[in-house]
């Protein structure tokens, strides 16, 4: 099977850094998979996610993505093309949500569609459907400051999916949430994989990793294990400590 996303020899050296943040990482992620990336602080988890998503350009190595328009080499795209890829084919749910404070919940989701040229009315109708689907009906006109952390993450999940993104990147999506809300948010993210989407989640939380189909563990920028959950999550939790 051709992987949806593939990395070969991925290396990232930050300017002034003594050791590489990523050191020749190889990784294949298939369509519909849920993959947890674990590791101690500074192990390179977030850098890996940023390189896979085209946010950072790696120092060496390649990242292939099976775009709807055919396979693309993410690392060789220019800034504008990588922006288009992120806008149209990828979804993001980060710890801080990457939501815009000044917009309402509805607008935050609709903006993703408006950027694709969809008229505002239609974009907001689609956004409202997603918010309703994720249990936020009635909160559409609230600003972010008026939402709880869990509600804000639901808005981010709605935005990640409203564009029809096939691959969702989540960076510590439950990091700022209580345990009950974390379970709810993870349920929603994993539900996306039931609809054929692929989920790559960076986490410190063994409970989050345990619920993913696969766990990749990094240490000092290298992949030290890549196994099916839940057994992997237990040993990964040890590594993270």
């Amino acid at each position: 099977m051709t992987p949806l996303l593939s990395a070969r020899g991925l290396t990232m050296q930050y300017p002034g850094g003594v050791t590489p943040a990523l050191d020749a990482v190889d990784l294949d992620i298939g369509a519909g998979e849920s993959v947890a990336i674990m590791g101690a602080s500074g192990s390179g988890k977030t850098t890996l996610l940023h390189c896979l998503a085209g946010i950072l350009r790696p120092t060496a190595g390649l990242v292939s993505f099976a775009s709807v328009q055919g396979p693309v080499r993410v690392e060789s795209l220019d800034d504008g093309e990588r922006s288009r890829l992120r806008r149209e084919e990828l979804g993001f749910v980060f710890q801080q949500g990457l939501l815009l404070d000044e917009l309402t919940a509805l607008e935050n989701v609709a903006v993703a569609r408006m950027l694709a040229g969809v008229p505002r009315g239609q974009a907001e109708a689609e956004a409202a459907q997603w918010l309703q689907h994720l249990g936020l009906a009635g909160l559409e006109q609230r600003r972010l400051g008026e939402l709880s952390g869990g509600q804000a993450q639901r808005v981010a999940i709605a935005r990640a999916q409203v564009t029809g993104a096939r691959l969702i990147f989540a960076d510590e999506p439950t990091g700022a949430l209580d345990s009950a809300t974390s379970v709810e948010v993870l349920d929603l993210l994993l539900a996306a994989t039931q609809q054929g989407r692929t989920l790559v989640v960076v986490t410190h939380d063994a409970d989050v990793a345990r619920r993913c189909a696969r766990t990749v563990v990094l240490r000092d920028g290298r992949v030290v294990s890549d196994t099916a959950a839940p057994a992997a999550a237990a040993s990964a939790a040890e590594v993270s400590r």
Binding site: D79, R82, S83, R86, R87, L98, L99
Partner: peptide, 13 residues
């Protein structure tokens, strides 16, 4: 931070 967020979401500069 907002500019970084928008960039990560693919919003053109």
């Amino acid at each position: 931070a907002v500019h970084v967020s928008l960039d990560r979401l693919g919003v053109p500069r």
